[in-house]
Write a protein that binds this DNA or RNA. Structure first.
Length: 426
RNA sequence: GGAGAGGUGGCUGAGCGGCUGAAAGCGGCGGAUUGCUAAUCCGCUAUACGGGGUAAUAGCCGUAUCGAGGGUUCGAAUCCCUCCCUCUCCGCCA
């Protein structure tokens, strides 16, 4: 696995990276890294020189005979004794080098707002008005239970904490969202993928979910992990390959079940469908040429695709630019789309769109051949297309009516097979 | 779960202790020739890191890499060990 960023780049842009790390609230020690890197180079050069010597003598030994040969063999043994020490030192230095490299964050974009946490994310857009009701609105748990769309009690009985069943029209509604997603995103030139959720370790390391995120992942007794997003398998699709970008970016629309332990979220969103251990998601994944402008353009495009989808559903939303403290190690910039949730009186995240430059592709070893023939690491981006069942929260809560029924968004009605959800058998 | 086979460059595929960073073929690039196309001929054609060099490239020098990691050896793609992966057959399940 290659480093996160290129060591040359890190050394030449140390100040930029330090400022970026500070903005992201991430600890990294570049001065130490530079010192270790110097040491690494020194040891490496020493060792290379000795190896060159060894290779040269090896050839001499082959040609030599008798006493001459014995003499050369003796000299060789001395040389090798000296090398073992150098190799040992280099190995130690490399370990520290690798460890430090893993902590170096990608530089956030200039446009990323300053801030500590998601509370400091900057609203960049709002669409629609928070839904106003001439009656006391219910939350989705109440609505869906009453309408036979979900069963949370039995969900918990069978699946444990955060367990749920979707039922009846809840199933139809979720299915309708998938159908509409297929239609909306499918028309934008994506290649469709149904991605595995049970994925080997490599792709998690490559996408940056490991080693840091061990706690958040379910692991099997075979050493595989359950992915929390199709991004993992989809990015893994081309790992260790040289891809062809001459015909434009690679654009995948991938569907998969998603599994999250939510290890750090005990006590948060304990009710309903906001935060569950297993769900389904359509994900947009893009690989493009290593050009910043291209990444930016596609990032905006991915996010806009999802905004459009929400607009088709006519649910009030806002888009935020995530602040530095809310960015992951590899992310350059991130937008979240948040939908209005009347039951909570606030916007809740439904989508997240980020770009990484070559941060992920270096780790995944995904390259392409540039017009001039050189091999370069591609850029990568990903964004939620739409997750279920979380999206159902906003649909049912925003579309509820005074009589307790739920109006099906127009764009979904055909797929659901009705325009109002009024309970089982209705 | 049982039994076998195998992992070599962009691909196919040889090599099975030194002359192999790796035959041959295909593909690709450059050139010659044929008025176009096809065909033929010649040359070139892995990656990373480092050195030196440059305005920057290229050439040049060195090291490493034949699934991964260890070992044997003066010397390993080739021998030994461990692990990973792929394939085939049987069984089992859907």
């Amino acid at each position: 696995m290659a480093g996160m960023l290129d060591i040359h780049f890190i050394r030449e842009n140390a100040d930029l990276i330090k400022a970026g790390a500070a903005k992201k609230r991430i600890e990294t020690d570049l001065d130490r890294l530079a010192a270790v890197d110097d040491e690494r180079k020194r040891l490496r050069q020493e060792l290379d020189a000795k190896r060159a010597e060894q290779n040269r003598r090896s050839g001499e030994i082959q040609r030599a005979k008798g006493a001459e040969r014995e003499k050369l063999l003796e000299q060789m043994r001395e040389l090798k004794a000296g090398m073992a020490e150098g190799e040992e030192k280099l190995k130690k230095v490399m370990e520290e080098w690798q460890r430090l490299m893993l902590t170096v964050p990608n530089i956030p974009d200039m446009s990323v707002p300053d801030g500590e946490s998601d509370a400091d994310n900057k609203e960049v857009k709002t669409w629609g008005e928070p839904t106003a009701f001439p009656f006391a609105p219910k939350d989705h748990v109440e609505l869906m239970t009453a309408l036979g769309m979900a069963d949370f009690e039995r969900g918990a009985k069978v699946a444990g904490f955060r367990g749920y069943f979707l039922k009846g029209d809840g199933v139809l509604l979720a299915n309708a969202v998938w159908q509409l997603a297929l239609k909306h995103f499918g028309a934008k030139g994506f290649e469709l993928l149904s991605a595995p959720s049970l994925v080997r370790r490599d792709a998690f390391l490559g996408t940056g979910y490991l080693p840091q995120g061990e706690e958040d992942l379910y692991k099997t007794q075979d050493g595989d992990y359950l992915a929390g997003t199709a991004e993992v398998a989809t990015m893994g699709y081309y790992m260790n390959e040289t891809i062809d970008l001459s015909g434009g970016p690679v654009r995948f629309l991938a569907f998969s079940p998603c599994f999250r332990r939510e290890a750090g979220a005990h006590g948060k969103d304990v009710r309903g469908l906001i935060r569950v251990h297993e769900f389904y998601k359509w994900e947009q994944v893009v690989l493009c040429k290593a050009e910043h402008d291209e990444s930016v353009r596609l990032h905006e495009w991915l996010n806009r695709n999802t905004e459009e989808f929400i607009e088709i559903l006519k649910i009030p939303y806002r888009t935020v630019a995530n602040c530095g403290g809310d960015l992951g190690l590899g992310q350059v910039k991130k937008y979240d789309i948040e939908l209005w949730v009347p039951g909570e009186g606030k916007y809740r995240e439904i989508s997240s769109a980020s770009y990484f430059h070559d941060f992920q592709t270096r780790r995944l070893n995904i390259r392409y051949r540039n017009a001039d023939g050189t091999l370069k690491f591609a850029h990568s981006l990903n964004s939620t297309a739409i997750p279920t069942p979380r999206i159902l929260v906003s649909i049912v809560e925003n579309c509820q009516q005074a009589d307790g029924t739920v109006r099906v968004p127009e764009a979904l009605a055909a797929y659901v097979g009705k325009d109002t959800i009024a309970g089982p058998g209705k």
